[in-house]
Simulated assay, not measured.
Amino acid sequence: MLQQIYPQVSHHFQYELNKDMQIAAAHFIPHEAAGKCANIHGHTYFVNITVAGDELDDSGFLVNFQHLKKLVHDKFDHTLMNDHKELFNHQNSSDFPTTEVVARKIWEIVQNYLDTLPNQPKCLQVFVRETPTSYVVYRPKAGKQ
């Protein structure tokens, strides 16, 4: 995987971890204004998830990297994003599988998992690169963390 620097999040936590992953997936944007993107097409998405917290778990991890990979990579790799009906739909533009929405949905998946952990880490941001020249960063508003 290409090593790169991601936008940094200012925070007060003692620990920060970042998990990179590559996801090969297809999607289409169900809207007439999407132009060519209304057709099914694929990307090799580069995803970076930033998690922070003050307490480590019983195994000495803030969060196990394998769990993040299972939550995101194993769910989306080699799939059609639009087929994930529990996340995306064709009626509400806030749920179209655009890169912006994909980043937000990944944050929701990760944060929902983190909320179950006793050490309560927080997902600070999700970075999704769709193409070599286009990426999105999703950060929750204060109070959502």
Rank of each mutant, 00 (worst) to 15 (best):
G53K: 04
A103Y: 07
P132V: 00
D95S: 11
L56Y: 07
V136Q: 14
K75R: 15
K36T: 11
P132M: 00
N39Y: 00
P30H: 03
H67C: 05
R129T: 01
C37D: 10
I49C: 04
E32T: 14
F96S: 04
L56S: 06
D74H: 12
H78I: 01
F88Q: 01
Q111G: 05
N119V: 08
Y135L: 10
S59D: 13
I29N: 13
L124G: 03
S93I: 15
L124V: 06
E100L: 07
C37R: 09
V126W: 00
G35M: 06
G143T: 05
I49K: 06
K36H: 11
N39G: 00
E32S: 14
Y135C: 12
F65H: 11
D77L: 10
V47M: 08
L114C: 09
P118F: 08
R129H: 05
A142I: 14
V110C: 03
T44D: 10
Q145N: 13
N112T: 13
T133Q: 12
T133H: 11
T133P: 01
Q145W: 08
N48M: 12
L68I: 13
H78D: 03
V101S: 06
L80C: 09
Q145P: 01
E108I: 09
P30W: 02
Y138I: 02
F28V: 09
V126M: 00
H67W: 03
A103P: 09
A103W: 06
V126F: 01
P97K: 00
H31V: 15
E108S: 12
G35W: 05
E108C: 07
P132E: 00
R129A: 10
P121T: 01
Y135H: 14
T50W: 03
C37N: 09
F46W: 08
M81E: 02
N112Q: 13
L117W: 06
L124I: 05
L71H: 01
